[in-house]
Design a binder for these strands. Structure first.
Lengths: 196, 196
DNA sequence: CCAAAACTTGAATGGTCATTCAAAATTTGG
DNA sequence: CCAAATTTTGAATGACCATTCAAGTTTTGG
């Protein structure tokens, strides 16, 4: 019991420290020593728990993806119509617990660096495919078949763009306003006017 | 005459090599030696021309921003209505010469790393303010005053999101389709239905 | 309480990299 | 053609960093 406990505690602490430190210094500049200091540990302990720097980054990204997925399925469970499920996707992405400057910032860091790390790229690809299929599934009930892909592209671009802008924001974010705005975008994109 | 010529030629070659190499290896991993090799020069010559790695990155970002700005003013000159000018902004961002995978990719690299480099951050801030004011100026003629900011946020998020997705794309991009889709988004956002 | 297992880290290692510099090559202006 | 200015680079420098390892400390299970 306790054997597992300690490992889990350290994992969590080190991942949290990674989020804070990558946000503060950037993916390109962050060092093991900085992350370790933030966590009150030594750089050597990171190697002990995660094997390597890349292992730590992968674990941190997994942590963030898990958090997002949890928020998503939670909202999905209560949604009953395709439109409500689209709202649920947006609500998850702009949930109070996820839509903060540091988290959007670190998300961007991983996003930008995923193409250059096989382990991050893999996680990124899997997550991306999942989100796309969710969007397509719901949109297929709401817009003509030949517009589904265009509508998905629009919704997903908007969602990503909001995160990207949020990452650059100075002040704190208004997650509720973001959700409302996102709902409106869903409504617009699924209205008849999308047709060319 | 020739004195300036050589410097300009080298500047251009090194900046072009920087774009190619950063796209290939990522901002976090790229080295002076790699860029120099791509340009058929030595790492020392980069220091000679740009002073430092950060100087080279700043010059490269300036180059990209200049390119974007040129495309923008060109379209602006021909636009006659607020809506046409919004189209022009989109057309510039999704111009054939700019909307390519490598360029979207490197743009993301700079975007993600700007917050951690004072010189990049400065360029980024200036560009951002310029784009925002353009959007606001045109939107103020098209939507009620209390919706201008929301509409700007939506349009800009969409635009950024499309670039972000394009950077991750596997195949080549269809810039004309991107422009058409962007026009439709402009139409949607400036329609009466934006109202909550 | 005890031995074994798990955990922790300071210091060493080996490697990488931006930058500098001196010397050489090239170009320029006359 | 020549001297001065400019351009080029190989090698040296110094700094930084991820990872390893051996030696300790703490925790665990009995």
């Amino acid at each position: 019991m306790a054997r597992k406990r300690i490992r889990d505690i350290r994992n969590e602490e080190l991942i949290e420290a990674t989020i804070v430190t990558v946000h503060k210094r950037g993916y390109a500049a962050v060092t093991m020593a900085e992350i370790a200091r933030e966590a009150g540990a030594s750089a050597a302990s990171i190697s002990y728990y995660f094997g390597s720097k890349e292992g730590l980054m992968e674990a941190t990204m997994r942590h963030l993806l898990r958090k997002l997925r949890r928020a998503m399925v939670e909202g999905y469970a209560q949604a009953e119509t395709p439109r409500e499920r689209l709202y649920a996707v947006m609500n998850a992405n702009f949930a109070d617990s996820l839509f903060t400057v540091p988290q959007c910032s670190i998300w961007m860091q991983f996003w930008a660096n995923a193409p250059y790390s096989p382990r991050l790229a893999r996680l990124h690809r899997i997550n991306r495919a999942r989100v796309i299929s969710h969007f397509l599934a719901e949109l297929s009930h709401l817009v003509p078949a030949d517009q589904v892909e265009t509508a998905r592209q629009a919704l997903q671009s908007y969602m990503d763009g909001v995160w990207l802008q949020a990452a650059q924001s100075d002040g704190p974010l208004d997650s509720q306003a973001a959700r409302l705005a996102a709902h409106r975008v869903v409504d617009l994109v699924t209205s008849r006017e999308l047709a060319a």
